[in-house]
Computed example of a mutant assay.
Amino acid sequence: MITLNRRKALALMGGTLAASGLAAPAIAMNKKVKVGALRFTSHSGSFVAFERGYFAEAGLDVEFEFFQAAQPMAVAIASGDIDYAVTAISGGLISLADKGAIKVIGGALTEEEGIDGQKYLISSASYDAGITTLKDLDGKKYAVTQAGSSFHYMGSKMAAAEGIDLRFTPLQKVGAIIGAMKSGQVDGWSIVPHIAKPLAKAGAWHIAGNVSDYIPDYQVTTVFTSAKNAADERGQTESFLAGYSKGVDDYAAAMIDKTGGDAGQDEMIDLIHKYVYTDRPREKAAPSIVNGTMRLSKNAALNVASVQDQLSWFQSEGLVGADITLDTLVDDSYVETVGA
């Protein structure tokens, strides 16, 4: 186990509670922790836990730090700048796990049959030029944030199934990709539904397929922390997972199961709007927040079969070491694991 500053963590990247539920956490005595997040509906578990006092009840004084991509969050965890985060598995995250710096401790966003999920997209300029199906993207530019990102993984899995080759084009940030898709500088991309659907309706691009059709039961994002926290701060880590899981339960009840009816959904939209689409008035933000509703794993259960598939893909692409095992990446002692 090692301690890293942010510069060392970047260098190491190389460019690239029980089965029945969470155990009762040890109260962390108002311990201050920093949580990494993206301003996506899919990060609502953390937002709800904070706003409804579940982190505070678990003894945690939570402060958010916001990012624009997955890999910088992995660096921040490894360097100790943040304590916990929810994000996709990336080559950088795996490489840092291999160095003993971080551990995946739970599951978050997952593709579930019957719930609208992530979409594959074709830019409108490309569509108008005759590229109307995913198979037509053969040899075309496909946007990713970085090589070794979840976008890279999703694009590659689709390309393999369709028997095509893609020209992966790293653009670093989601905002830059949206601009490139609108202007026709890239041909294809994949993204969560709250971004995909409203901009497709506005004519920015065309939806060409569902990620779940190519990657069933995909564990899209995971909960992770430093290896030090996982090993030495068990009470604090259990407290974080307990608070987060209560937030997930409330989110699912309001947005998926709709146990509170329209009033419950409206209340949840108001809460999420504090963090997502904050530059829009509530009435314009609400449809996109609803469009982004996807399943978050109950009790942070982790689909280890999906994580293994992702790890194997990164290895097959030469993006991470061939000898890295699932145990190197995952500490499975905190939550229920499925798909093993």
Rank of each mutant, 00 (worst) to 15 (best):
L4W: 05
N5C: 12
R7E: 14
K8W: 06
G14D: 01
T16V: 13
G21N: 10
P25A: 14
A26Y: 06
A26R: 11
A28F: 08
K32S: 15
G36S: 02
G36W: 01
F40E: 04
T41W: 08
S42Y: 02
H43Y: 07
H43L: 03
E51F: 15
R52V: 02
G53Q: 09
G53I: 05
A58R: 01
D61I: 13
E63D: 13
A69C: 05
A70N: 04
A74W: 00
A74P: 01
I77N: 01
A78F: 00
S79G: 11
G80I: 07
D83W: 01
D83P: 08
Y84W: 07
Y84H: 03
A85D: 03
A85Y: 04
V86S: 05
A88E: 02
S90V: 05
G92T: 00
G92F: 06
L93M: 10
A97Y: 04
K99D: 04
A101L: 06
I102Y: 05
I102N: 06
I102H: 05
I105P: 00
I105R: 01
G106R: 05
G107M: 08
L109R: 13
G114I: 12
I115F: 08
D116Y: 13
Y120N: 05
L121D: 08
I122A: 07
S123H: 09
S123M: 08
G130Q: 06
G130F: 07
T132R: 14
K135G: 09
D138W: 10
D138H: 13
Y142W: 13
V144P: 04
A147G: 14
G148S: 01
F151K: 07
Y153P: 08
Y153C: 00
M154S: 11
G155M: 00
G155D: 00
G155A: 04
S156I: 12
M158L: 10
A161V: 15
D165V: 10
D165N: 15
F168A: 01
F168W: 00
L171R: 03
Q172G: 00
G175I: 05
G188Q: 08
V192S: 10
P193S: 14
L199F: 14
L199T: 05
A202V: 00
A202C: 12
A204Y: 15
H206K: 15
A208E: 04
G209Y: 08
V211I: 09
P216A: 13
Y218K: 05
V220Q: 02
T221L: 11
T221F: 11
T222D: 06
S226T: 15
S226D: 03
N229S: 09
E238D: 14
E238F: 11
L241N: 02
Y244F: 15
Y244R: 11
V248M: 09
G261Q: 13
A263L: 14
G264T: 03
Q265F: 06
H273P: 07
Y275E: 06
R280H: 09
R280P: 04
A285Y: 03
A286G: 05
I289C: 03
I289K: 03
I289F: 07
V290K: 11
M294D: 01
L296C: 05
S297G: 11
K298F: 06
L302F: 07
D309R: 11
Q310L: 09
S312F: 00
S312M: 12
F314I: 09
F314D: 04
F314K: 05
E317H: 11
E317R: 15
L319K: 02
V320F: 03
G321W: 10
I324M: 12
T325M: 00
L326W: 06
T328W: 01
E336L: 14
T337C: 11
